[in-house]
Design a binder for these strands. Structure first.
Lengths: 243, 243
DNA sequence: ACCCTTGCGTTCATATTGGTCATGGAAGGT
DNA sequence: ACCTTCCATGACCAATATGAACGCAAGGGT
């Protein structure tokens, strides 16, 4: 099977270059081009399709200078462009997700994401494509059964598995991240311990990991007797993906 | 949450009546109308949307006298109609599935199907909608994390009893599901083991499958020494009214 | 200025559970 | 009656939060 042709749509040059580099690093994918805004993206897609060399997958940023990503998706469908779309966005609005799904968005990436997450999403998409191409070897083009379709859908929508350092669990990390994000100001390790019902050591270890990852920032808190306490504050996510 | 309004598009009167009856039998869904062909379906959708009472889900037969289902989906998107689509077809062509996904088809049913399959697909769609409405309690529109989106997508896929993974039996799964549903709070794998008289490995495997399918949610239980224990909670918010 | 108090950072060993592999036994087909 | 298939089980190893112990850096009293 030939490679899947990908178009990167991203207005920020740094992020666009990063995504393009990601694509070329991956096996089974080929970069068809990049576009900085919606109009040029639609023009590129139309040109490629007219040349008989259509783009099959679009990495689509939702926030573009001229058009919203959902508008681009809608115009693509109206123009008969059936490329699949992986949405990339920094706005974490859940109500957009449903509209995105309705316009044929197959994956949804929230910035900032790591390369592992990115690769995982694209790998699951490739698996989805492969399962649709030939679900069963003994059935030469006979047709698909319900379970074949189910399996293809399942591989497309399987949750990602991120690799964490030893000693940390995914669910605990999610709890801690969720708690810090809800707080308006900074939190200390003891406050996390009390709020989540975990031990001080555990809370501190996860906070330290998040500080190393850059998700939270760390500062000392003075003024109280005793050894100064570290306080952690949620960082606004940067616009670019972190590798 | 109010019911999900459904439009049935099917040219065969018998099948249309059957699907309509299915919808009305299901909890959480309301039949908005039926249409025998593509033109009337589009007109109905437009009228409902103009009346401020839009259809949220379309059961769309692929083979209609005037238009193909994919054409209807394409025109819907072009007209700005963002209703989700569950495709129903007798033609088992896999290459259509990809185009269907690109136009926002969330589920794919192959005729003939049983009522159980039908109900299962719609139940997973409803769970998807609920998770997008409020992914986590106590988070008033703060935003979604990557895992929230992943979980919503995961609930949309269909790993139901139609395609059980190897190593699981239907009867055991029913026992486990019944037990968890009866519990008010969360249960651990060990409690399921003790209550149902099965081994810990078996209990854990079924709980893990249910968590993966989105039927139950998984969380860590802290406070006790030793490795944290996973607790599983039935994932149904029917009476849990969120302020 | 010195020392004591205070509370957190840090480092282990420990207690449990999660995850995996190979085995046993039962059900159904031939 | 034999064989295949399939699911539950038991035992193993790996993983992860906890608790105690120790050290450290500030504040406050003398």
């Amino acid at each position: 099977m030939s490679d899947i042709r990908v178009l990167v749509v991203e207005d920020e040059p740094i992020a666009a270059a990063a995504h393009a580099a990601y694509i070329e690093r991956l096996d089974g994918f080929t970069l068809a081009g990049t576009a900085p805004d919606g109009q040029s993206a639609l023009r590129l897609l139309t040109d490629f399709a007219a040349a008989g060399n259509p783009v099959e997958l679009v990495l689509l940023d939702m926030n573009l200078p001229d058009l919203h990503g959902l508008d681009i998706a809608r115009r693509m469908r109206a123009a008969g462009l059936f490329a699949d779309i992986i949405a990339i966005t920094a706005v974490r609005e859940l109500n957009i997700v449903r509209s995105a799904v309705a316009t044929g968005v197959v994956q949804y990436l929230i910035k900032p994401f790591t390369y592992a997450t990115f690769a995982d999403k694209l790998a699951s998409y490739r698996l989805f494509r492969e399962q649709l191409a030939g679900p069963r070897t003994g059935k030469p083009g006979a047709g698909a059964s319900q379970s074949d379709v189910d399996q293809a859908f399942a591989s497309l929508r399987a949750p990602s598995e991120v690799s964490l350092p030893k000693g940390l669990s995914v669910s605990t990390l999610e709890s801690v991240k969720d708690f810090i994000e809800r707080q308006s100001g900074a939190v200390s390790a003891s406050e996390v311990m009390a709020a989540l019902g975990m031990s001080r050591v555990t809370a501190r270890r996860y906070l330290e990991y998040l500080a190393d990852a850059g998700t939270v920032s760390r500062a000392a808190r003075y003024g109280t007797p005793g050894r100064p306490e570290n306080e952690y504050r949620w960082n606004r996510p940067p616009a670019a993906a972190r590798p």
